[in-house]
Design a protein around this nucleic acid. Sequence first.
DNA 1: GAGAACATCAAGAAAGTATCAAGAATGATT
DNA 2: AATCATTCTTGATACTTTCTTGATGTTCTC
Lengths: 229, 229
Amino acid sequence: MSDGLQILIVDDEIQIRRFLRISLEAHGYRVYETVDGQEGILKTAQLRPDLIILDMGLPGMDGLEVLKRLREWTQTPVIILSVRDSDRDKVAALDAGADDYLTKPFSMDELLARLRTAQRHAQPQPQAATFTSGHLYVDLTRRLVMVKDAPVKLTPTEYALLRLLIQHAGKVLTHQQILRAVWGPEYVQETHYLRVYFAQLRHKIEVNPALPEIILTEPGVGYRLKTTG
Amino acid sequence: MSDGLQILIVDDEIQIRRFLRISLEAHGYRVYETVDGQEGILKTAQLRPDLIILDMGLPGMDGLEVLKRLREWTQTPVIILSVRDSDRDKVAALDAGADDYLTKPFSMDELLARLRTAQRHAQPQPQAATFTSGHLYVDLTRRLVMVKDAPVKLTPTEYALLRLLIQHAGKVLTHQQILRAVWGPEYVQETHYLRVYFAQLRHKIEVNPALPEIILTEPGVGYRLKTTG
DNA sequence: GAGAACATCAAGAAAGTATCAAGAATGATT
DNA sequence: AATCATTCTTGATACTTTCTTGATGTTCTC
């Protein structure tokens, strides 16, 4: 389904809101409602929805004005609903930054398809999550580990362990925390696993495994990943 | 104006093409025309237009098929024109990767506004239409696979698999990602398929299938396509 | 220096992977 | 409508990598 994407509906007609809510929730979206434009802007700032469905004919501040105000600070996809089918309105809305424009009455299937399209367009550029320490370089998005510019092969467990350390780089992770996170709660007693796997990891990652510079032991407590390098 | 953006029109009706050309050129676009889908794909590969206007009702390969073929290798915005106003057609086109869908007759002002919107959505990610690694050469626009300068026949599934790997070349694709993308979400358990199909692919693509140099296994995780070479 | 915690090595068990091949399903052709 | 060729699906088996376990040596703490 839609993984619980949040949608904000800005429409003054209660029938429309109810119809949209029921249909959208049935398709796995999380729905929020607002009656007027002023509140729509406020809620957008608060909730940070993934998508906005905006009615053109609102009391007070009209839809076009709301859209313009939104576009001053956010690129959240906005789909316009309107009873007016005139070119002038469509062009004005689209050029003000709307992502699509549907004329009432519209079919739910079409709206859903256009929601998916708008959502596709919203895809932001994924920033690479990387970590560096000494000779070690890890790209978490690519699952790539390099030591001295050479790729290193890690087993699934070794990689899970390293990733955990990176996610808490600099902080001490206790034996139990590590065992719980990597192997599961039922393994908290198996401290021997830590010995074995940290030895393997160091062997693959450290320049001199006997004198670790990146994966540090905190005796009696746990392990820690050294930051900066 | 439109900074001389290149637009490719794929439509078999000469009146429509002429009408579009005149209007679009008057607004500063550079216009190219094609009559059928096959040629549309070819021209897209050659010209690399900034935008494509695609008619649904084409002779031979229909618009939806053309769209799907285009989306195998390019994200160039595509605006669909159609005489059919049915939900089914709209949903199919939008979900196949169309950026917008207009029903004939349409107003030129609206089309222009939707062109501007589509253009705004265009993400500058120049995706290569061909891929090379070692003895392997793949032309995604023609669905052509060559090994050591000799064409190789792949089944639809084998090709879908290879195309997925190419689109994420260098990155590790997990078993589940692959199964979901190629076979569908309901097949994520069928890891045996991976074994069978990767063996077949390697047999057709690798010089020595037992010592793969292009399709690499990441044990316990997934597979990866080697870049460069 | 004794005891506890930590590191290392290595081998068997388990899990994951590669390959072959045959039957079922699909689609084109006559 | 039946035949044929291709592709998909499934199963059996051999092989490889990773996990788990135990034995043994080292370092640190008191």
